[in-house]
């Protein structure tokens, strides 16, 4: 198992390099001189020299990439143009907010998605199934930021139950988590439902009935156990998709997280910060996928055996 995790980590290295090349190129692909893109407007010539030396802008692209990458690997993400502070500081401030939101939203999606999916599958084609799947579909067709605004309007402004924005109290986390989590809930519920229905038709389920096991125990201990394997697969593939929702929702709730930082920097053309945010988000996605794969392997003895 440890060997498997190690091999998967090794596999991530080329992926990380490829992603880093794309993110590095942003600064060169945007219109205009890279130096101007890295400087505050109205900077003097000596600052131009500092930046040129810092990023090696007078050297070939490969060397520039190497300078940038080695900096990144040592935790040096450059200096924010607008804030005039190390980007690493900004990221360090924002990351905990995003992590909390992302993890809570993931837990929310997984729990409610599985519960709703199981209820729908056990009541297949009956009213409960159609109501749940219809509601879940409706939830996933609403843009996250809009749903967030609606929730603010209803629960914060009209009912006064939660703070409108910010991240100072735990109650401020409730609405963002619900907003981000609903999209994922829809996905998890759909996959769980289909996987439950498919697993219930497997041969061994009939033998469980033949052994005289209670249907509830069969469904929860055996059928669900199997259905969870594809659910974890989809979750690990789409973990980034769920976390991506957090980017837009943070802005709506004015949570000082990575998403807010990214959108603000995009609008301010603060490219070192944009690069750093994208890199961190990409790494989060890669790690999430890896964790999903490991959990999947841990759940299925057949996969475990194949991994040695």
């Amino acid at each position: 198992m440890l060997g498997y995790i190690f091999r998967r980590l090794l596999l991530l290295v080329p992926v990380f390099l490829a992603v880093s090349v794309v993110i590095f190129s942003i600064i060169h692909l945007i219109p205009g001189d890279p130096i101007d893109n890295l400087l505050k407007i109205g900077s003097g010539p000596e600052q131009r020299e500092i930046i040129t030396a810092r990023y090696g802008l007078d050297k070939p692209l490969v060397v520039q990439y190497w300078i940038w990458l080695s900096g990144v690997l040592q935790g040096d993400l450059g200096t924010a143009i607008v804030a005039r502070r190390p980007v690493a500081d900004l990221i360090a401030q924002a990351l905990p907010h995003s992590l909390t939101l992302g993890l809570c939203a993931l837990a929310f999606s997984t729990t409610f998605g599985i519960v709703l999916g199981v209820i729908a599958a056990l009541n297949r084609d009956k009213f409960a199934d159609q109501a749940i799947m219809g509601g879940v579909l409706l939830g996933s067709t609403m843009p996250g930021f809009w749903l967030g605004l609606l929730l603010i309007l209803v629960f914060s402004v009209w009912l006064g139950m939660f703070p409108v924005s910010g991240a100072r109290t735990w109650s401020a986390l409730v609405l963002p988590v619900v907003t981000v989590g609903l999209g994922g809930t829809a996905l998890v519920a759909r996959v769980t439902r289909v996987a439950m229905i498919e697993a219930a038709q497997r041969d061994f389920v009939m033998l469980l009935h033949a052994k005289g096991m209670r249907p509830l125990r069969i469904n929860l201990r055996h059928v669900l156990r199997h259905a969870l394997i594809p659910v974890v697969t989809i979750l690990s593939l789409r973990i980034g998709w769920i976390l991506g929702g957090a980017v837009t929702v943070e802005v709506v709730f004015a949570r000082p997280g990575l998403g807010t930082l990214l959108i603000k920097s995009l609008n301010q053309h603060d490219y070192p910060v944009v690069q750093a945010c994208l890199l961190i988000l990409a790494m989060a996605v890669m790690l999430g996928t890896l964790i999903g794969d490991v959990i999947q392997a841990a759940m299925d003895p057949r996969i475990r055996a194949a991994l040695g």
Binding site: V15, A18, V19, L237, R238, I239, G240, W241, L243, G244, G245, V247, T248, L278, L281, A282, V285, M286, T289
Partner: peptide
């Protein structure tokens, strides 16, 4: 490579 990244990113 691009598959696992959210479209929004």
């Amino acid at each position: 490579l691009t598959w696992s990244f959210p479209e929004i990113l």
